[in-house]
Amino acid sequence: MLSNMEDRWVWDLNGDGAFRVKDVRTLLDECFLSKAPTALRWVEYVQIKINVFALKVFLDRLPTRSNLQHRGVQVKF
Protein backbone atom coordinates (compact mmCIF):
# COMPACT_ATOMS: atom_id res chain seq x y z
CA MET A 1 0.00 0.00 0.00
CA LEU A 2 1.54 3.32 -1.05
CA SER A 3 1.10 6.59 0.78
CA ASN A 4 1.98 10.22 0.11
CA MET A 5 4.44 10.36 3.02
CA GLU A 6 8.04 11.34 2.38
CA ASP A 7 10.64 8.56 2.46
CA ARG A 8 12.38 8.14 5.79
CA TRP A 9 14.74 5.82 7.60
CA VAL A 10 13.28 3.61 10.33
CA TRP A 11 15.24 1.63 12.88
CA ASP A 12 13.21 -1.25 14.25
CA LEU A 13 15.41 -3.47 16.41
CA ASN A 14 13.41 -2.83 19.55
CA GLY A 15 10.02 -2.14 17.99
CA ASP A 16 9.70 1.59 18.68
CA GLY A 17 11.57 2.90 15.62
CA ALA A 18 14.22 4.68 17.74
CA PHE A 19 17.96 4.16 17.14
CA ARG A 20 20.04 3.19 20.15
CA VAL A 21 23.69 2.14 20.12
CA LYS A 22 22.87 -0.29 22.93
CA ASP A 23 20.45 -2.16 20.62
CA VAL A 24 23.12 -2.49 17.93
CA ARG A 25 25.69 -3.73 20.45
CA THR A 26 23.20 -6.25 21.82
CA LEU A 27 22.46 -7.49 18.31
CA LEU A 28 26.16 -7.83 17.48
CA ASP A 29 26.85 -9.59 20.78
CA GLU A 30 24.07 -12.08 20.10
CA CYS A 31 25.21 -12.71 16.52
CA PHE A 32 28.96 -12.93 17.04
CA LEU A 33 29.96 -13.19 20.69
CA SER A 34 27.59 -16.00 21.55
CA LYS A 35 29.67 -18.20 19.23
CA ALA A 36 32.96 -17.25 20.87
CA PRO A 37 34.20 -19.37 23.79
CA THR A 38 34.83 -16.21 25.84
CA ALA A 39 33.13 -12.84 25.74
CA LEU A 40 35.09 -10.24 23.76
CA ARG A 41 34.75 -6.62 24.77
CA TRP A 42 36.47 -3.44 23.67
CA VAL A 43 38.47 -1.71 26.39
CA GLU A 44 37.15 1.83 26.09
CA TYR A 45 40.16 3.65 27.52
CA VAL A 46 42.59 2.01 25.07
CA GLN A 47 43.08 3.22 21.49
CA ILE A 48 41.03 1.34 18.89
CA LYS A 49 44.14 0.06 17.10
CA ILE A 50 45.27 -1.62 20.33
CA ASN A 51 41.85 -3.26 20.72
CA VAL A 52 41.97 -4.51 17.12
CA PHE A 53 45.52 -5.81 17.60
CA ALA A 54 44.53 -7.65 20.80
CA LEU A 55 41.52 -9.18 19.05
CA LYS A 56 43.70 -10.38 16.16
CA VAL A 57 46.19 -11.89 18.62
CA PHE A 58 43.37 -13.61 20.52
CA LEU A 59 41.88 -15.06 17.31
CA ASP A 60 45.34 -15.95 15.89
CA ARG A 61 44.69 -13.71 12.87
CA LEU A 62 47.91 -11.69 12.81
CA PRO A 63 49.47 -11.71 9.33
CA THR A 64 52.59 -13.55 10.43
CA ARG A 65 54.57 -15.61 7.94
CA SER A 66 53.21 -18.89 9.32
CA ASN A 67 49.58 -17.67 9.38
CA LEU A 68 49.85 -16.38 5.81
CA GLN A 69 51.41 -19.63 4.56
CA HIS A 70 48.73 -21.61 6.40
CA ARG A 71 46.09 -19.64 4.45
CA GLY A 72 47.82 -20.24 1.12
CA VAL A 73 49.40 -16.80 0.70
CA GLN A 74 52.76 -16.84 -1.08
CA VAL A 75 55.41 -15.30 1.20
CA LYS A 76 58.74 -14.24 -0.30
CA PHE A 77 61.86 -13.84 1.77
Rank of each mutant, 00 (worst) to 15 (best):
T64K: 03
L55I: 06
K35H: 14
L55P: 02
E44I: 07
R65L: 08
D60T: 04
D23K: 09
E30F: 14
S3P: 00
G72N: 13
V10R: 06
R71A: 15
E6T: 07
Q69Y: 04
L68H: 04
K35Y: 15
D23A: 13
L27S: 11
L40P: 05
V73L: 11
L13M: 00
N4T: 09
L28H: 10
T38W: 01
L2D: 14
M1K: 15
K56V: 00
L55S: 05
T64F: 11
W11L: 03
D23S: 12
D12E: 11
K76D: 13
R20C: 06
V46N: 11
V73I: 15
V43Y: 03
N51A: 03
W11E: 08
E6S: 10
L28Y: 11
S3M: 02
D60G: 08
K35W: 13
R65Y: 02
F32H: 12
I48N: 03
T26G: 01
Q74K: 10
V52D: 06
T64V: 12
L40H: 01
Q74I: 14
K49G: 01
M1W: 11
R61F: 00
L55G: 02
L13A: 01
S66Y: 09
R61V: 00
E44Y: 04
W9E: 02
Q74M: 08
N51G: 07
A36V: 03
R71M: 14
N14S: 14
S66L: 10
T64Q: 08
E30C: 10
G15F: 05
K22C: 12
W11I: 09
K76L: 14
V24P: 04
A54R: 01
P63K: 00
N51I: 00
L40I: 13
D60E: 09
I50P: 01
S34Y: 09
A18M: 04
L13C: 00
L62R: 13
F58T: 05
W9V: 06
S3D: 13
R61A: 14
